[in-house]
Design a protein around this nucleic acid. Structure first.
Lengths: 333, 333
DNA sequence: CGGGCTCAGGTAATCGATTACACGGGGAGA
DNA sequence: TCTCCCCGTGTAATCGATTACCTGAGCCCG
């Protein structure tokens, strides 16, 4: 593959001139033409590796995602990739699969590759390498999940308004015994959702007693199903269930069906994270929709601010309620 | 960040020695210890960028995926990433979103980054940059989709056995009027599936007339839904429908429900690509399951063969039928 | 006791770009 | 006409590793 020296020779100039033409300095038409002609003839493309070594900027971002196969994170990753590319950056995606160890493995590799900045939606309760990344001076932005003890801006959604609306929605439909399926202990964001929901229910005189709050052992359908099993076995089973993650909601739905019960007539079901195929379920699921693509975009912008040395605040975008039929009301749209 | 020179100074040796110790040559215990101690004290990590420039190997693979948000491809990408990492390679994923132009954009970027090899599940009917990649000598392996005119091994699944089993399954259940929803024209793999299904049906005396074959305008749910609409409007509507892609199947299911019909009593539904949430639909969908993770692994191995200069044949793995309840039979497992 | 062999380890070239600095030619002002 | 300045371009250092080649110490054997 042709290099800058070949181009210089062919154009009869020095490598410095070629570099300058290609980087938009030194606008002398005649030389410029010759260089560009040589570039075209040779099909020259600058070697990004060499450039990165010299400039100490790789124009690459790293994204470590907690579980790529969770459709919420798939879409998030896609949004991040698009925005990064739009701004001239490549993205290396690492899937942690909810394993802190694999997450560390990925962060290490990314740091070794001298990425310009790092986005992490952390699996579990944080990890050693996150601290090392900060210590190494790599710009870091947390995504969707905060990590205690890590001083980095966090870009995520929060559901107070949506949950307030949801509480009213459920109250209006006469649901009086809500339950919540939360993420495993130690996931701070799940607790926030729980508390906001509790607060939103209070004005309607609806309580959320401990026996109707179940922590799933994992963030997968089977975990949600287990919790749902326990909830439906209660003497007074819930008449509405909120799952704080889309996969757990799916498992919960399985359990309802396996018992021959129906959504929404026997129990209403609401999920956090509105993923595309919720609309294709029977019944279509009402969901608290996070502004996924906006989150991805905001995360990239925040990270670029940090890369350019500026301070960047955390970003908190509002989620909104998408009413479908899983609470009993006909679809609004 | 510490570099090799810092380590050399601290250990009182030359950079060459440090490099040799770190690359496993020159096993003299005493020096070795000193170097490793210096590495540990300084927290030194080799600069991958510099190494790549010198060795002309980036230890990075590129994957351009036709639609990352299609769960089949999400899993495929995940499998590829895991296997690549296991073998010491990083993976840069580009999502083409079924757009040949975006695909080209990604391939260009990846070539500029001097990736060691390229995996492509091509969107549309191929693209100019694929040819350029081959011309530039970048090892290339096609994934899931062949591209006419591109001389590169292709790793994909084929469904003859599964479709033969499916034909028998449908015949045994008394379904006599099958229909097929195929991908847009020009997608060779869809046509193969169609012909194999036709061949499999013949021994049972079941025909597949043209009016019961519908080409979707796209590979998304809405396209599948449109075709299903046309099929159900036929004077003799089908009693079994095979969709050659999971998203189109989803749209088809929507249309069935919207008409108040039921699966499987009114019409049986089968999809290509067994994605995790098919098992969570009502009814759980019978599917032709591609060995997704094996495909990902095989693709990486094939690519590494090519990278090391060896010839590598195409890989064709058999799909298998996963019977659930969408054809009328109770689940086998 | 000396010559040659072995091998650990140092010196310096190299990968392909960017960029600080030097240089030289031409135009403008005195 | 001479001088100074400007600016376009070339020369060479640099980024951080790998590695070909060279050096010199130690050892064996005749």
């Amino acid at each position: 593959m042709a290099n800058i020296k070949d181009v210089a020779e062919r154009a009869g100039v020095s490598v410095a001139t070629v570099s300058r033409v290609l980087n938009g300095r030194s606008p002398v038409a005649e030389t410029r033409e010759r260089v560009l002609a040589a570039v075209a003839e040779l099909g020259y493309r600058p070697n990004v590796v060499a450039r990165a070594l010299r400039t100490a900027r790789t124009r690459t971002l790293g994204l470590v995602i907690s579980d790529l196969r969770n459709p919420f994170f798939t879409e998030l990753a896609d949004a991040v990739e698009q925005e990064a590319r739009r701004l001239g950056y490549s993205l290396i995606i690492g899937n942690a699969g909810e394993s802190p160890q694999q997450q560390d493995d990925h962060i290490r590799t990314l740091l070794d590759r001298r990425i310009d900045g790092l986005l992490v939606s952390s699996a579990g309760t944080g990890s050693a390498m996150l601290g090392e990344a900060v210590a190494a001076g790599t710009p870091l932005v947390l995504l969707d999940r905060t990590v205690p003890g890590i001083a980095a801006p966090c870009v995520r959604a929060e559901g107070r308004a949506a949950l307030t609306e949801l509480a009213a929605h459920l109250a209006a439909l006469g649901r009086r015994r809500p339950a919540v399926i939360v993420a495993p202990a130690g996931t701070p964001i799940g607790d926030e959702r729980l508390e906001q929901f509790r607060t939103a229910l209070a004005p309607h005189g609806i309580a959320l007693p401990p026996e109707r709050i179940g922590a799933s052992p994992d963030l997968r359908p089977e975990g949600g199903r287990q919790v749902m099993r326990r909830l439906l076995d209660l003497a007074e089973p819930p008449d509405a269930v909120l799952a704080t993650d889309n996969l757990m909601a799916l498992g919960a739905l399985d359990e309802v069906r396996a018992r021959g019960l129906r959504v929404p007539s026997d129990v209403a079901l609401v999920a956090f994270d509105d993923v595309a195929w919720f609309a294709h379920l029977d019944p279509p699921l009402t969901a608290v929709a996070q502004p996924t693509r906006e989150l991805g975009r905001a995360a990239v912008h925040t990270l670029l601010e940090r890369i350019e040395g500026r301070e960047a605040p955390s970003v908190l975008l509002p989620a909104r309620l998408v009413r479908r039929r899983s609470c009993g009301e006909p679809a609004t749209h």
